[in-house]
Amino acid sequence: MPADGVSQLSHASERVPGADRRETRIIVIGNEKGGAGKSTVSIHLTVALLRIGCRIGVIDLDVRQRSLTRYLENRVRWMQTTGAKLVMPEIVRVEASQERDLDRAEAEESERFQTGISRLKTTCDFIIIDAPGGDTFLSRLAHRTADTLITPLNDSFVDFDLLGDVNPQTLEVLRPSYYSEMVWDCRKKKAQASRRPIDWVVMRNRMSPLAARNKERVGGALDNLSRRIGFRLAPGLSERVIYRELFPAGLTLLDLTEKGSNVAFSMSHKAARQELCDLVIVLQLPELAGAEINF
């Protein structure tokens, strides 16, 4: 590990014309509950933006699981074994501090994080940060830095509880939950420091294609909560086996027609691509104004 605790693992694509005039946008994929699909969203959004022609930097802050890092390592291995040429982001990995003193540990992690951000800002149009599935110092740093915060949420009241507590009969929002309060605190600090807002987008992830009463109730509760605490709702990615099958090869839905993918392209995959396209559109990223988004 380098002395500064920041590893730079690969290099991004060439700059797009005119990109030097834009400030790098930081997109954080955050949710304190594990299993919501943060890494799946991170890798697919990364490849989608690369396909559009953007330069992307990635920071994996999940210092234990490193799912996004492993995904990208699998992607490099796939290219090496098949000869396929796939788009790749620039990757920075920030290590957790080993200091036992809390103040020194936080100071060290903050310096490593800012060093990673500064490196990627010199070359990238977007920085995508995969935040850890827990309330950590690095996670809060990432949330305070976000320009766009995407929170994937499994379509159930178990995961909804991360955001807010509701009356089970009326679906009236009783109070925001701990994660919502953390995001609110980060939004205040970001506004005080830079006078720039955080655009918070909650996406209903792993949704069943079947209509169900619970699905409608979750949707109604999210609508109520979004008006109270100020986030936008976005369509998520449906529950599909293909996402788990693609991980060992480091591939995404946008790579299935590439050389050596060995995966037959189906109507289900086409529908999944459309979901991803819809997500990118709903994010309303100013930097993509006028860009053609068609996967």
Rank of each mutant, 00 (worst) to 15 (best):
G35S: 01
D159C: 14
G34N: 00
G34L: 03
K121E: 15
T40I: 11
G35V: 00
D165H: 12
E95F: 13
G37E: 00
I128N: 03
D103W: 14
F137Q: 13
K38Q: 00
G164V: 13
L149W: 03
D165G: 02
K85C: 02
A142E: 02
E90Q: 14
H44L: 04
L120N: 01
G30H: 00
V87G: 02
C124I: 07
S156I: 08
F160Y: 15
L120V: 08
A146M: 10
D125A: 02
G133R: 04
R93I: 13
A146C: 08
E32R: 13
R66D: 06
L162T: 11
F113T: 00
Q65N: 13
A105C: 09
I128P: 03
Q98C: 04
L163H: 09
T151L: 01
T115A: 11
C124W: 00
T136D: 07
L49R: 07
W78N: 09
V76N: 06
I129T: 02
R66G: 05
R55L: 05
F157N: 07
T69C: 02
D147L: 13
A146T: 12
I127G: 06
L72M: 13
V63S: 13
C124P: 00
E95M: 11
N31E: 01
T145P: 07
L61M: 10
V87C: 04
A48D: 06
D155W: 11
M88H: 12
T136A: 10
S118V: 05
T123Y: 01
T82F: 06
T46E: 03
T136W: 00
C54F: 09
L120S: 09
L153D: 05
L72V: 11
K33R: 09
T40E: 02
A131K: 11
G133L: 03
A131Y: 10
F113W: 08
A48I: 05
G57C: 07
L138A: 07
H143R: 10
R70M: 09
S110Q: 15
Q65M: 11
V47E: 14
N74C: 12
F137K: 14
L86K: 03
Y71A: 15
A96S: 15
V47T: 15
K121F: 03
L141I: 12
L61K: 07
R64V: 12
R104P: 08
P132N: 01
E108K: 13
G134M: 14
V47D: 15
I128Q: 03
L153M: 13
T115N: 09
T115D: 03
F137V: 08
I127Y: 06
Q114N: 13
I150L: 15
V47Q: 13
G83L: 05
Q65I: 06
R77P: 01
T148F: 09
E99L: 14
G134D: 07
R112G: 03
R100H: 12
D60V: 06
F137I: 05
